[in-house]
Design a binder for these strands. Sequence first.
DNA 1: CTGAACCCTTCCATTAGTGTGAAGGTCAAT
DNA 2: ATTGACCTTCACACTAATGGAAGGGTTCAG
Lengths: 129, 129
Amino acid sequence: MRIGELSKRSGVPARMLRYYEEQGLVTPRRLDNGYRSYDEHLVDRVGKIRGLIDAGISTRIIGDILPCLDRPQTIVVTDPHPELREVLLQERDRMTQKIDILVQNRDSITRYIKAMDSALGVVAEKTAS
Amino acid sequence: MRIGELSKRSGVPARMLRYYEEQGLVTPRRLDNGYRSYDEHLVDRVGKIRGLIDAGISTRIIGDILPCLDRPQTIVVTDPHPELREVLLQERDRMTQKIDILVQNRDSITRYIKAMDSALGVVAEKTAS
DNA sequence: CTGAACCCTTCCATTAGTGTGAAGGTCAAT
DNA sequence: ATTGACCTTCACACTAATGGAAGGGTTCAG
């Protein structure tokens, strides 16, 4: 498919798709006229990229971990240099840390909302009486 | 305490502490000489801010949710306008979404690492034989 | 008193991720 | 053959987060 369709289907502006290409995250083939041609599985890929960027992962990091994200992963394991493993462990830990912080703060927000609600509940009871 | 000590204790550059102030996330008192004076509980606060920024939450959003994050929250609930509740719900959902994406991708990384390890394990067995 | 180590404010620079627009090529349909 | 929708590259600009320097006070220790 061409860039417009991918843009529509993934919800990502064409501008950004070109940017991701520039950053080495997607490398579409080119048609004879120079148009980019994406194949099907890149829809998912782009979705993943967007999610990760929204979650505060930089394109550089995403580039590092992308090989792990394409199913099935069992094919790509033929890379026995130990650098990669370290990078992945480190990035996994960073993600875990972000997750913990987000969970913790989200729960604080949830508690706060509940507190608001019960406070308003009291008010409602009083005004109803 | 003054900015240098807070910087050391929180691990956040003084430059950034001034920036957070500019964004309305912390408002230290001022000494007679104009120096910023932070009190104890801001150490935690700054830590939280850093965590959230690292997790991809913008200072604008952080400003919105900060009131929920200071323990104990029960004091601050005296704000019965319904706008805030919507904002909080929305932000909580965004955080949940980020969490889901991070968890999912972290698990992919973990699986990939395991696959690498078992592949290398096979190699090790072969070379050992 | 002087120097070191703080602190202040005010700029300017950089990077990443975006938005937007110009100037032009391709292509299908009228 | 022209129109309109799509594509190309290039470029300029914006925001958020951050780094850093310049120029100038304050405090304290020697």
